[in-house]
Design a protein around this nucleic acid. Structure first.
Length: 279
DNA sequence: ACCCGTGTTCGCTG
DNA sequence: TCAGCGAACACGGG
């Protein structure tokens, strides 16, 4: 489910559930070994058993669970892939949620379940506290939600690429946390044609795009009042402006019909009327 | 049955 | 060497 807002919710949820708790057991379900590659899951089980959870932070779409064991710091990176989700149950006698792949038994009797039907998520153990040196993390740009967007840097990176701007937005070195939904949403909010080459945007357009990314995140983060996030499908209604709305009339200009196209293998939604090449 | 997919990585090509 | 593309990953839902 995750782009930046969902991962932010997951971080808050985990923080509230597990901070200060000790891990009594860490179990990995059958078939879930691939979540830990290239490290054998058995090694993680060994390292994490008995560790105390200190904090949970988010960097782009990555979750970093910081722990300590015998006074030594330890980090567990969790990436939710496309279908990963964390959930807690108060009592270990409750049945596991569907597709629970990893179970973290805590010292208050509760259990955290990492659920991931497609197994696209990833875990990574980071010894010590040098989290920022992990290549996955080091290559990310500064987090746009936590740290704001550096327009200087944003402009320099866009100016160096001729990729369609919507495709470029998916590059996690730019604004980590932007995914396929918010890339479309941000282009729409900024009234920029998603096909425009990145280096063709004016300074004004780049500023508008940066603000639009934040606005798009904020719409989700403020819309769900800290509850369980419901994205598209299964009961949740579509709260996005263009994503998944092919064929509907544009809510802004009321003239255009929203279209769907494929860019670099991913769906892009846009309004051909108000996302024009100029201005 | 068939197609699609909120993410990332790998291998191939030009 | 590198930007760019498509496939692969694995499974549920429309």
């Amino acid at each position: 489910m995750p782009e930046l807002p969902e991962v932010e919710f997951a971080a808050r949820y985990l923080r509230r559930w597990a901070c200060g708790r000790q891990i009594e057991a860490f179990e990995v379900g059958p078939g879930a070994q691939r979540l830990f590659r290239p490290m054998p899951a058995s090694l993680l089980v060994c390292e994490l058993t008995g560790a105390r959870i200190d904090d949970v932070v988010r960097m782009g779409k990555h979750l970093l669970i910081t722990l300590s064991k015998g006074g030594a710091p330890l980090g567990l990176l969790s990436h939710l892939g496309m279908t990963g989700k964390w959930g807690g149950v108060h009592d270990s006698r409750e049945g596991a949620p569907s597709h629970s792949r990893v179970q973290v038994y805590l010292d208050d009797g509760s259990v955290l379940h990492y659920c991931d039907p497609r197994l696209f998520g990833r875990f990574r153990l980071v010894p010590g506290a040098r989290f920022l040196e992990v290549p996955d993390i080091a290559s990310l740009g500064p987090d746009p939600w936590a740290q704001g967007i550096d327009l200087e840097r944003f402009g320099a990176l866009l100016g160096r690429s001729r990729l369609p701007v919507k495709v470029k937005l998916l590059d996690q070195r730019l604004l980590p946390g932007v995914g396929n939904i918010h890339a479309s949403e941000a282009c729409f909010r900024a009234r920029i044609d998603p096909r425009r080459p990145s280096d063709s945007l004016s300074a004004t357009e780049r500023r508008r795009l940066a603000k639009s990314v934040i606005a798009s995140f904020r719409a989700v983060l403020e819309g769900e009042k800290g509850q369980e996030i419901v994205y598209l499908g299964e009961g949740g209604q579509n709260r996005f402006l263009v994503y998944g709305r092919e064929g509907e009339s544009c809510r802004r200009c009321r003239r255009g019909t929203l279209r769907k196209m494929v860019q670099a293998g991913r769906s892009t939604y846009f309004c051909p009327q108000c996302q024009r090449s100029r201005s």
